[in-house]
Design a protein around this nucleic acid. Structure first.
Length: 580
RNA sequence: GCAUCCGUAGCAUAACUGGAUAGUGCACUUGGCUACGAACCAAGCGGUUGGGGAUUCGAAUUCCUCCGGAUGCACCA
């Protein structure tokens, strides 16, 4: 990234002397060279010369002054930019001196709040929770690497009707009883028990109206914090949280806040009062709503249909209950009060795009966040099965996250050098799972193919871990002579050059990820590096090299590759392993 | 019905946000372990980027229009 910036600075100076528009002094990665500049095409019209002749002019001028690269005109008006060996070597050696990827801390001073995870209390984590966790954690780490202060909140689904359902169902099944201001337990509440009760209750509410009504009533009692109901809720929450924390730990997800919908409750009355006071709300069919449509939106046509619909946000049910949207508005209110973030990032699936659009408009309009606060929703696509529908097991159930992790870990364990190392096996399995997920464009739905996930060949997480494990093995078998300048590369050949450029691309991909909020480019870049290393490995017999200086160079290439892959995977929250 | 997202080789996907010959993996075909780890490497096969039109030096990418898919549209979260 430094290099790209520096190139642009150099170009800018030359553009100034040539009297070209300085904004056009931009370079991008190229398949034909290291970088390219396409400014000649844009300049051609204004100047009245052919793009090709402008390219020639730029190159001639750049080659006089540039210390970084060689410039060559190409094609109809492209400028190909090839980095000089010195520039490449000094980039590589910077990594040796710091042991880290040289990233520009572009997010320094920014506070960014991340909301991802979204596990539901009393419900096992399942495949639907996978993407939010994987993507959210990775995006957060990108920002952290780039210098931002990050705050992450798992935002549990821990409030609302589901608890009314569970409590009512538990009462009906003789598990507990709420009598006046006393709760009697007849059975110990365990995770297993909750896992059984909830699906039953959830199914029952659809065709048992009487049950649904009682559950709703219980929910209202909980929401008004009736001590008995509140104490049952607390117990359920505590028990569930143990399993949820274990799951997220497995996924390398680190949350600063284990909050949830329940945490917003105390703010709801105040938020509603403020919105009402500001004259932003109105009543409709007994519900309290707020219009969030802008100019030209939500216009009622003659046919009774809305054009460019942006329906009002519903903040209060006819019976006075709060809703999903109310929670999110109040949560943002509370978070802003406490942390004053410059940016909120929500990693929630694409189906909730409209919901977040409404919520964000509401808090902006109400002034609950400052005008400059960015509110971003990353709407990721759903994980589908081969039939293109949300992934289910053969029996039609959603598959548990734990089961998936065990499945891939089992598969990895089979191939291990040393059998029985479960920890390593799980890391390998998870690398497959995560890398496959992150390699896809965040917003698209993608097909989850279990066969593909356990194949571990080609462009996969395990291939990357394998590359690192191999390097570990080489470095262990070959004594490194620090005195001969380990931690420096002196001579570049084509393979080594390709490796260092690949590392450069990784840095650029990470840098870019904060802006585009996509991660597949990082995956691609790491994979290219591993591929380039494998090619290097196949053509360089490191162990038997007689020239000590050359051998040391090559070992340095190994060390460099290891650092880059490990660091990049760390950003993606993927662990590497010592051996496999 | 309206709105949002999407359609790239047999399958799964990428393209740095409008750049050059559309990359990559799986599968398939060939070659490479008595050489530092073959979860690997080298090479090959496979494409009218859903159809049509427009914009310009240049389109998978922008716009329009069909076709096909997913999702969302008032008191569930």
């Amino acid at each position: 990234m430094f290099i790209k910036k520096q190139l642009e600075e150099e170009l800018k100076k030359v553009f100034k002397t040539l009297n070209f528009d300085e904004e056009l002094a931009a370079v991008s990665a190229s398949s034909q060279a290291d970088y390219q500049c396409n400014a000649p095409f844009a300049l051609a019209k204004r100047i009245g010369k052919s793009p090709a002749s402008i390219a020639v002019e730029i190159c001639a001028e750049m080659n006089k002054s540039s210390t970084l690269a060689k410039f060559e005109p190409s094609g109809a008006g492209f400028v190909n930019i090839t980095l000089k060996n010195d520039a490449i070597l000094s980039f590589a050696n910077e990594i040796f001196s710091t042991g880290k990827l040289p990233l520009v801390r572009s997010q320094l001073g920014q506070t960014v709040f991340f909301d991802y995870g979204g596990a539901n209390i009393a419900k096992e984590l399942h495949i639907g929770h996978l993407r939010s966790a994987i993507i959210g954690e990775a995006i957060k780490r990108v920002y952290r690497e780039l210098g931002a202060d990050t705050i992450s909140d798992v935002y549990l689904g821990d409030w609302g009707l589901q608890f009314g359902l569970i409590i009512t169902q538990a009462e009906d099944e003789g598990i507990l009883e709420i009598l006046g201001d006393e709760v009697r337990y007849y059975k110990e509440i365990t995770l297993e028990l909750l896992n059984e009760i909830y699906p039953r209750a959830s199914k029952r509410k659809n065709d048992d109206k009487e049950f649904y009504a009682r559950a709703e009533k219980a929910t209202v009692l909980l929401q008004s914090k009736t001590p008995t109901y509140f104490s049952v809720w607390k117990k359920i929450r505590e028990i569930s949280l143990v399993a949820i924390k274990r799951n997220y730990e497995n996924l390398n997800c680190e949350f600063d806040i284990w909050g949830g919908e329940s945490a917003a409750q105390d703010f709801i009355p105040r938020v509603l009062a403020e919105l009402c006071l500001k004259g932003l709300t109105r009543t409709s069919d007994g519900a309290v709503i707020m219009d969030v449509a802008g100019e030209g939106e939500h216009i009622l046509g003659e046919d009774g249909k809305y054009k460019n619909p942006m329906p009002p946000i519903i903040l209060k049910k006819h019976n006075g209950g709060a809703l999903y949207a109310t929670n999110d508005v109040a949560t943002i209110f509370a978070r802003y009060k406490e942390f004053k973030p410059d940016k909120f990032v929500y990693v929630v699936d694409a189906r909730q795009d409209l919901h977040f659009n409404q919520v964000f408009r509401c808090v902006k309009k109400a002034g609950f966040v400052s005008a400059g606060t960015q509110l971003v929703h990353i709407p990721y696509g759903t994980i589908n099965g081969k039939d293109g529908k949300p992934f289910k097991t053969r029996s039609g159930d959603t598959i548990k996250l734990e089961d998936i992790i065990n499945l891939v870990a089992d598969e990895a364990e089979k191939r291990l050098e040393k059998a029985g190392d479960r920890e390593t096996a799980q890391k390998i399995g998870l690398s497959a799972l995560k890398f496959a997920d992150l390699s896809n464009n965040v917003r698209k739905d993608y097909i989850f193919d279990i066969e593909k996930c356990i194949s571990f060949e080609g462009k996969t997480g395990p291939y990357l871990l394998y590359t690192v494990a191999r390097i570990n093995s080489i470095l262990a078998k070959n004594a490194i002579e620090q005195s001969k300048g380990f931690g420096e590369i002196l001579k570049l050949d084509d393979e080594i050059r390709a490796i260092i450029v690949a590392v450069l691309r990784i840095c650029e991909a990470i840098q870019n990820a904060a802006e585009t909020l996509t991660l597949n480019n990082i995956c691609d870049a790491v994979y290219v590096l591993a591929q380039n290393f494998s090619a290097f490995y196949a053509t360089h017999n490191i162990q038997n090299e007689k020239d000590a200086a050359l051998k040391n160079d090559w070992l340095s290439v190994c060390a460099l590759t290891k650092t880059a892959i490990t660091e990049a995977l760390n950003v993606l929250a993927i662990d590497t392993v010592e051996r496999m």
